[in-house]
Each structure stands twice: as C-alpha cells, then as structure tokens.
Design a binder for these strands. Sequence first.
DNA 1: GATGAATGAGGCTTCATTCAT
DNA 2: TATGAATGAAGCCTCATTCAT
Lengths: 194, 194, 194, 194
Amino acid sequence: MVKKDKPKYKQIIDAAVIVIAENGYHQAQVSKIAKQAGVADGTIYLYFKNKEDILISVFEEKMGVFVSELEKIIAKDASAADQLGMMINSHFSLLASDLHLAIVTQLELRQSNHDIRMKINNVLRGYLKLMDRILVSGIETGEFDQNMDIRLARQMVFGTMDETITTWVMNDHKYDLVELAPKVQRLLLKGMQA
Amino acid sequence: MVKKDKPKYKQIIDAAVIVIAENGYHQAQVSKIAKQAGVADGTIYLYFKNKEDILISVFEEKMGVFVSELEKIIAKDASAADQLGMMINSHFSLLASDLHLAIVTQLELRQSNHDIRMKINNVLRGYLKLMDRILVSGIETGEFDQNMDIRLARQMVFGTMDETITTWVMNDHKYDLVELAPKVQRLLLKGMQA
Amino acid sequence: MVKKDKPKYKQIIDAAVIVIAENGYHQAQVSKIAKQAGVADGTIYLYFKNKEDILISVFEEKMGVFVSELEKIIAKDASAADQLGMMINSHFSLLASDLHLAIVTQLELRQSNHDIRMKINNVLRGYLKLMDRILVSGIETGEFDQNMDIRLARQMVFGTMDETITTWVMNDHKYDLVELAPKVQRLLLKGMQA
Amino acid sequence: MVKKDKPKYKQIIDAAVIVIAENGYHQAQVSKIAKQAGVADGTIYLYFKNKEDILISVFEEKMGVFVSELEKIIAKDASAADQLGMMINSHFSLLASDLHLAIVTQLELRQSNHDIRMKINNVLRGYLKLMDRILVSGIETGEFDQNMDIRLARQMVFGTMDETITTWVMNDHKYDLVELAPKVQRLLLKGMQA
DNA sequence: GATGAATGAGGCTTCATTCAT
DNA sequence: TATGAATGAAGCCTCATTCAT
C-alpha cells in the first residue's frame, strides 16, 4: 500500500484545499493545514516532501478526476460537438460542486511561484492533450472547420471556459455555473464548425 | 504638479516592470526596484504608499495605454467586426512590443495576493466595459447574434485573447503574436456572428 | 544476562560508529543508526536510554579496548621508555585498523555538545590515569626527568598523539600512521628523559 | 569604510563570543547574539551573510590577533628557542586574558559542523605556517635536531599547547595558565634540541 | 521483545517600512 | 526632497522520543 492510498494522504490534500480556499494561498501555513487535517505538523512530512509537494499533489489529485471524466467522454460514441458539450458540462459541474476547489484552482493556486506553476502546467497539459483529441476528431469527421488552427481553437475553448469560471468565482458564485454550459458550448461550436 | 507627473514616478513604475519581469514577482523586492530606478529605498515611499500601491499603479499606468487605444478604435466609424479586429490587433501589438510588460501582466502579476488582484480587476473592468460596447453595437447593427449572451461573449473574447497571449509568453515568444490576430478575430467572429 | 551482553547492543554500537563516520555527527540520526543496525527505531530505546546514551556507550565500549591493551603493556616487565613506545604503537594501531572509529573519535564525536563531551572525558580520564603510571614509573626509575611536571608531560604525550592522529585522519589516511609511532616516541622521550 | 571597520561589526563579534561561551555552541541562537549586541535580529544580516559567517568571522578576527603577535615575535632578533618561548607565552596570555574566548576556541567552536570546521582550519593553517618558520630557523641555526620531522614537531608543539589549554579551560581556570608557559617551553625544547 | 507511525517544539532568515540626518 | 541603516515579525521543516499494536 503506497502513501497515496493511505487515508491520511487524502485527508491532508482535502485539508489543504479547504485552508487555501478559506485563507488564501499566502496565508495557508503548513500548521494550519495540519490542524485542519487533524494531524501534527510533522505528520505532513511523512506524506509530502515539502510544502510545494502538497500544493502540486492537490492539483494532481483533483485534476485526475477531470482527466478521468474526460476520458470517459472521449470513449463514448458521440459526435465531437456533443463531446465538447459534455466536457464543458463535466468541467463546470465538477467545480460548481466543490466551491473550495474552484477558488483554489481559479484564484489561489495561480499565486504560487514559478516552479510550482510550471509543475502545475505539466499536469494541466495532459488535460489539454485530451481536449485536442476532440477537436481533431471533429475536424476529421467534418464537423469542425478543416482550416481551423488546432492550438488557437484549443486556446479559445480553454480560455473561454477558464474566464467564465473565474468570473463566476470572483462574483461569489452568485449565479448557476452549470446552466451556462450549453450556452458556452453553442458559442464555441459556432466558432469552430465547418 | 501632482506626483504622477514627476519624472521619478514613471521612473519607478518602469523599474518595477523590468525588475518583476526579470526576477519574477516573488523576487521583486522594493530595494531591487529602487536600485533599478536609481533612487534610494526610502524615496519609493515618497511616491507610493506601499509596495501594493506600486504594483497597482504599474497596472493602472500600463492599462491606461490599452484603454486609450481602444477608445480611439471605438471612436472610429467602422463595423463592429472591424473594431473587434483592431482591438485584438492593438492588444497583441502593445504586448508584443514590450516583452517585459507581457511577462508581468500575463504571468507575474497573477501571483499577487487576493487584495491586489481584486484591485487590478477593478482597473481591468474599465477595459472590459469598452469591449462590451463593441459587442453591443455589433448586436444592434445585426452583425452579431441577437440572442448572444454579452457577458459570455466577452468572456470568450477576453479569455481567448488572454490564453493566446499567455501561451505565447510561456513559449518564450518563439513565434509572432501579432500574426495570430486575424486568425483569432475570424475564430471569434464566427462564434458571434448572426 | 545484562543488556550489554545481548547481541543487539553491540550491533547498535557498531552501527552508530559506521553511520557517524559515513554521515558525520550532525547527520547521524537515530533512525539511520537503527536502519544500519537492522532494527526498528523504537528498538534502540530498549537498549539505550536516549541518543546521548548511545554516543557515550560507543566511546565506553571502544575505549575499553584501548584501556585493556594499555593495562597489558603496563603489566609487562619493561622500561618506561619501552612501555611508552608500546602504548603509542598500540594506540596508533588500534585506530589505523578501524578507520571508521578513527574518524568518529578524532573528528565527529568532538562536535557533540558540552554534556556529552564531559561524560566522554570521564571515560577518557581512566586511560590518562594509566598513562600517568608509565610516567611516574619512569621518574621513579630515573629514566625521566625528576623535575618534570607529570600533568604537563601527560598533556604533551596525549596532545602530541592526538594531534598526530587527527592530522592523519584529516589527510584521508594518505600515509602510514603506525610507521610514525617510533618517531613520535623518540620525540616525546627526548622531551622527558633525565 | 568597509563593513569590518564599522563599530557594529566588532560589536556583534564580541557579543557572539560572550553568548557562545555562556550558553554553549548549540544554544547560541542568532536572536541571543543580537540581543547581547544590542541590535535587532535583522541587523546581524547587514554585517554577516548567515550564522555560519558569524562563527567563522569570530575565529578570523580573534585568530588575527594571535597571528600578528606571532609575526612580531618572528621579526625579533632572537634565538629560535626564545621565539618558541615567546610564542607559547603570547598564546597562553591571550587566552588567559579572555576566558570567554578560551571557552569558545577550545570547547564550543569545535562542535560546529564539518563546513565551518574546515573553514576554521584554513584560518588556523596560517598560524601553523608561522610556527613552522620558528622550527625551520631553529634547525638551520643548529639549535634544534637536524633530523627532526618538522610536521611531527609542529604537531607536538601545537598538540601540547592545545591539550594544556583545553585541560585548563575544562578545570574552570582554577590555576594560572601563563605560569605554565616556561615549563611547557622547556619540555618542548628538550624534545626538539640538537 | 519488537515495531514504526505519529508527535511537536524550536530557530534562521527575509524584506517591507520607518525615521534620523 | 532624498537617503539607507535599522527594525522585527513570521513560518517551514527536522528528528528524538513515545506508545498502541
């Protein structure tokens, strides 16, 4: 049984999300995370190399859910347009159902230093690669514009989703994010369709 | 003559951009900015209330150029589609011509804490309001989709531009950003047109 | 059967010597010693009161060999000058044959704190008392200077041996330490002879 | 005016000696040294790179006095035997007149880690080189044994002095160290003379 | 006897800001 | 105005020791 499977590992990850969301990135001291997790400060270091390791693991663990959801969607026998819609819906739903996580990924984790951000980007890259597969298949089936620049399209898709979610978080989740998904889908589809 | 018109004010602002771009947000100490500006540490505090004030002023001063450029574009007698294109072009050009500024706005300043980011967003809001005017006029003239959600459309426009620029910065400006402007314009227009 | 006779006791002592020699005093954590000894961390505390107790015991156990060798030499029917020579030779030989031990006694154990060093000195005192007996017998037989200050002479003898060995250890045992013994003996004898 | 000439530099060095002597090496926290020096913790770092730098500087500054005294002695037109005596006397006197310093150099500073000890040894080496010059000149003038091994002789001289002083310090300076100097000189001279 | 997961105290260092000159 | 020496609060991490199994 490796560390990641032990209950305290996930306990600390979840505590970190809560502490960061409620106190902000720069006020998320290790001692606060330990307290929230119900363990001693030193115990943290039995499961994580250092504070940076906690933050990256938070992103890895949580992003893992996004990736596996997206993999399920891609495995489905559906049109690229529908897959795009399911992806947006899945992405929005996951964050709307965990407000702490939304704050952490959209606002707080972006305050981390260069090193951490680079490592977070590596994790994100896996997600973006999956996203590309939907776009490529859409082009192949003729659903999407043959001349579309994949990278640019992916930046539009991700940028729009990201901006939409960030605005929603910054407005204190005053409105329903998931309801926006179909609209976002339509907007993006129009931009990409053949 | 107010502080903002004195030469040392701009001198410190410019020094801050360089120091942040070259050292990263978290390594941009006040003393480094002072040294780069050629003044003593204490002198900074004759022109700025505190470090936060420097950072927000950097954004205000530099954003001012974006805003006035956009105002000129809106004042022109052109179609909404053309204005959108000119805006993207202007936005891309301003950042492509000042790599330090691009690094600072796309990467480094986003590491600032919650308070500073909120204040930066207030400044940004003015720019987004102007952007909305292009979208509204496009809808009114029938160029853009009547049923389009303005906020969503603006998030798509800004999110796409932002993601495109950030990717370009992170790839060390290896390709020509301004060349991408027409492609981005076409992609966004397709998504919004009637 | 007392603790000291149990196999794990000596096992831990020997592990401590190796770990301290190879990692340095300040990097010789209890957990490393336990690992080297092939026991669990907690097991250490079944044989030793605390870490300090391990270190003092290391010195006691190893010094015991020096003492018993010296006792054999003193029991011999030889001149004081010869006994001095045999002592130097024995002292040098024991350390030359156990490089780990030489590093530990000459360099690493001296980094220990005040308390431990005082306790180590108590152990050392027994050895120095034996050394004094050679000097006293040399004075009585007329071999050594009648007016010689015993304490000073002992400090010269021990100080010279110690400095010689430490220099040898610090030079990575590049030359043969035991070969130096007769020269050291002659030098010291000249200083002490009648 | 360089840092070393500023009054606070020496103030901190002297404070460090007192704090280390009175509290022991491992209880000599930077904050204690700052308090003893009458400055804020942060001020220490305007004069020293880090804690290690303080400790090495203590040794350098204090050793500097020993070196310059020894240089004066070597410059004198005296026999090697007399110079040896003057050196021992000077060395003993300097430590006997500053009990704090004696504790620090003979006991506490030896607890420092490998890095610091190596740097301290570099400083010490300069002193030992000067010592060698007395021995060499004694051999050249025929005062000392032509066949004497210089390194061994130096180890005897330094080892004897060091052991004598350490014993004196450990016995809480109960007797007069300087009074021992002539006796030590005679003992060592006998060992080295032709 | 043996284990090893858990504990928690403790200190070096940075850097925004002040204020006497 | 301008200076820059001085301030002092605040947090990550290590590791000897314990104790439930």
